[in-house]
Design a protein around this nucleic acid. Structure first.
Lengths: 117, 117
DNA sequence: CATTATCTATACAATATAGAACAAATGTTT
DNA sequence: AAACATTTGTTCTATATTGTATAGATAATG
């Protein structure tokens, strides 16, 4: 993998969730944060699969937390964004910004076509 | 396909390019615009594949232009974003914004981990 | 040992990417 | 003007990477 890659759409969202959650970021909270802030349903498997890939790529790290004293308190796997990860979000973010700037709030200002079907 | 879907990362970029280029948007200019504004190499095949997919989903339409009187002036296939397409960018854009807001310029403010490997 | 929360494994669908092949126009050569 | 070269543009084919859901395994408490 070239280290110039951009984050995929969902990867992007996930990394942002980690940054927001700071040291409270683990599978379940990540999912919640996304469902809360975007109006989108997320399957937990999707979250873990993506987190694993991000870890493989060196964009995040994970470590086991201690079990908490609650029923079902299995130990959590906490995630954290690496410096490399931050670089990647920034790059992705910047690209999007460069493409967007000057467009106004599209959909209002720009007249559009209708689908053929 | 549910009409609640988000644009993939590259789809997003492509649609933004179309909006910028307005009525000058066809394969080659789309590619140029992206390479110009993001610091990214784009293969022409990727552009068309994505444009086709977007058209199938009703996010863009295309029509043939007349051949132009220049060397190599083969007729172009012009693309245009549909209302549905604009809705989709907006939705994608908003989701990203909601996830980003309050984060400051990440990378500066947030302290990060180092990759395990 | 039933219940709860979390994580893992796996499979499949959708998206992204590269590159070569093909097409249509004009320019050049003889 | 026929043949061939050059330029610009599109299509096709193949493959890799991302995104997604589901089912089931684990580890804790009551």
């Amino acid at each position: 993998m070239r280290d110039r890659d951009y984050l995929g759409e969902f990867e992007h969202i996930i990394v942002l969730a980690l940054l927001r959650l700071d040291d409270r970021a683990y599978g379940v909270t990540v999912r919640q944060e996304i469902e809360l802030r975007t109006d989108r349903e997320v399957s937990i498997g999707a979250v873990y699969a993506t987190l694993d890939r991000l870890e493989t790529k060196g964009y995040v790290t994970s470590h086991r937390g201690d079990p908490t004293p609650e029923r079902g308190g299995r130990s959590k796997r906490f995630f954290r964004v690496t410096a490399k990860g931050v670089t990647a979000v920034s790059r992705t973010h910047r690209a999007l910004q460069n493409m967007t700037e000057g467009l106004g709030s599209f959909g209002v200002t720009y007249d559009v076509a209708t689908p053929s079907r």
